[in-house]
Design a protein around this nucleic acid. Structure first.
Length: 593
DNA sequence: GTTAGGG
DNA sequence: CCCTAAC
């Protein structure tokens, strides 16, 4: 009886009592925290999926890129033709803004100070996937630093914190495409960097923004907290994604479609592979001319550590993507940490200065890398943030809806990662993530030294026995009711009432097998709502007012009847007594239309 | 399996 | 449209 009040203001020609719907309205509203967390993960997955699909629409999706371009970042088990087991050694967050729908960022190639003004990311392709850094086989998941494609935020050096950069303003970046490096005016320069440890001032850097867009803001907050640098929420992002519920929601689907269409219309789409540009040695990290011994870096993109994917060969590409997305989301959900790699070696001592470590303005920063690693302090904050529904408290439950939680691959790092079959058996499913347990989360330790154990990154094992969420439970495609259908529905409800949806279905939608009686009930619900709001607030294909009037009339009529008889359908043929719907309709229609 | 309602 | 409690 949601509309009762509203309907009071509408003359429907009938008096109807207020009939409280007792039992079912008393349902408890328990907020299932776990569900919330799942939703957020799903949201993340949905967003990431978007990006993934965007890339794929550019004819070279992330997978292909990784598969073909990089040193077997995805290896597949040859013998088993039933399943393809892939190892995703790394997975880059595409650096170019990929989601044109949300944000149209002009692509700026700072590498050559070439800024393609007005060129959208669609035209230049989405993700950029740089080559994997050969770091002696020790760190396989190195996050490459590259010349800044996205030099958005300057950290560390106050001098470069020009507002136009820090605030990430799109307009400003367009107008001043050399951005941060403006004062240096040298194409080989690297303009900025951001890193997680920078107190999240880089919250506003598009790179971060993109990630944040991928992650529900609440979750992001949590992750930021985990990293010890959370400093308040970004209400805007929050508002944006608060409602994103399911990665398979039709809204998401719609967006993906939109993106796809837009991309298809792009006249030319160059490959997203930019592995050459980043060259292994040519400087994934560059530096600006020294300014007071400061070091300026740009992290082009972060790689997600190795993931294990296993899907049936019969699975669709879409489901494969979703699986990857889920794996990624699960990975992120566990918290991540940043590692620093210099010359292929992890720097574990956080207290060392950069210059002591070899990260100095005089050094070639090509040898500097970052890693994203699993097992952030998530375990630590569980007791602290037990109120937060977003914390995946029990990884086991996580797997119900998503992929398995990150687990550690205890296999020692090998330079030869082609031989990956070992991995297949090697990934123990660990219920608990033990890494980081003894690493207390503290604000001063965003970058924590990693135990040797986790150097080889993690493996995620999507539970192949539970693909239901991805493959089977696809949401039905939305099929808006036509006016004709509405007409038929209204007609049927007028005759049968609002409590006999099965009969309505049988009578008016017998052959329309895509319309279930639940659909009809739902449609009626929305019709009543539509009829009770102002025409300006209505959306979709407009329903003739005449029909809406009939809706209200029938609604009022049947509400009244239900009230009188305290039960639906009471007294056969009751519909045609003193308050005959059809008679009433005829009379009213003459008046109202 | 249906119905009713919240999401 | 989905999900699910309550018939």
């Amino acid at each position: 009886m949601v509309f009762k009040r509203k309907l009071d203001c509408v003359s429907v020609g009938f008096d109807y009592p207020n009939i409280p719907k007792a039992p079912r309205s008393c349902r408890r509203k328990v907020i299932n925290k776990r569900t919330d967390a799942m939703d957020l993960l799903a949201s993340l997955a949905g967003k990431l999926l978007e990006e993934c699909e965007s890339s794929s629409s550019a004819s070279s999706n992330a997978f292909e890129v990784n598969m073909n371009t990089h040193r077997k970042e995805i290896k597949q088990e040859d013998d088993d033709h039933d399943k393809k087991t892939c190892v995703v050694n790394s997975f880059s967050f595409p650096d170019d803004d990929d989601d044109g729908v949300l944000e149209r960022t002009p692509v700026c190639e700072t590498k050559n100070v070439k800024c393609e003004e007005g060129v959208t990311e669609e035209e230049t392709g989405g993700g950029r996937f740089e080559q994997v850094e050969a770091t002696g086989g020790f760190v396989t998941d190195t996050c490459k630093l590259e010349e800044a494609t996205v030099p958005r935020t300057v950290c560390g050096d106050g001098e470069l914190k020009s507002p136009s950069c820090v605030d990430g303003s799109l307009a400003r970046r367009q107008g001043n495409h050399t951005k941060l490096g403006r004062d240096d005016d040298d194409d080989e320069k690297l303009y900025s960097y951001h890193k997680f440890s920078n107190k999240f001032k880089s919250y506003r850097s598009p790179t971060i923004r993109r990630i944040r867009k991928s992650i529900s803001s609440k979750y992001w907050k949590q992750m930021a907290k985990d990293l010890g640098h959370y400093r308040g929420a970004d209400a805007g992002i929050k508002a944006l994604y608060r409602k994103r519920k399911s990665c398979y929601g039709y809204n998401a689907a719609w967006q993906r479609e939109t993106i796809y269409k837009r991309r298809r219309s792009s006249p030319e789409r160059s490959s997203v592979v930019t592995s050459d540009g980043g060259g292994i040695s040519s400087g994934s990290v560059s530096k600006l001319p020294e300014k007071r011994d400061s070091v300026k870096l740009s992290i082009k993109s972060f790689r997600i550590p190795e993931l294990f994917i296993e899907v049936p060969e019969t699975a669709t590409v879409g489901s494969l993507k979703r699986t990857v997305m889920e794996a990624v989301s699960v990975l992120l959900s566990g918290g991540i940490r940043v590692g620093v790699v210099v010359h292929g070696k992890k720097v574990r001592d956080d207290k060392k200065t950069l210059s002591q470590t070899g990260i100095s303005c005089g050094e070639n920063l090509t040898n500097l890398g970052f890693t994203l690693e699993p097992g952030g302090p998530s375990k630590v904050h569980v007791p602290l943030c037990s109120q937060d529904p977003l914390v995946p408290i029990d990884p086991t439950n996580l797997s119900e809806r998503s992929a398995a939680p990150p687990t550690l691959d205890t296999k020692p790092p090998q330079a030869d990662d082609v031989d990956n079959n070992n991995h297949l058996e090697l990934v123990p499913y660990q219920k608990e993530i033990t890494v980081g347990e003894e690493e207390p989360s503290s604000d001063t330790r965003a970058i924590v030294p990693l135990p040797a154990l986790e150097v080889e990154a993690l493996a995620v094992v999507p539970l192949s026995q539970k693909p239901k969420r991805t493959e089977l439970a696809q949401r039905r495609t939305r099929r808006p009711f036509s006016v004709t259908e509405v007409e038929a529905l209204v007609q049927a409800v007028e005759e049968l009432g609002t409590g006999r949806w099965r009969d309505v279905k049988l009578r008016a939608f017998e052959s329309a097998d895509h319309r279930t009686y639940v659909d009809l009930k739902d449609k009626w619900k929305t019709l009543v709502h539509t009829a009770s709001i102002s025409p300006q607030q209505r959306r979709g294909e407009p329903v003739p007012q005449e029909l809406l009037d009939r809706v209200l009339r029938a609604y009022g009529y049947w509400s009244q009847r239900q009230g009188k008889h305290q039960g639906k359908g009471g007294g056969g043929g009751g519909a045609h007594k003193d308050a005959d719907m059809n008679r009433g309709r005829v009379v009213e229609s003459g008046v109202s239309v």
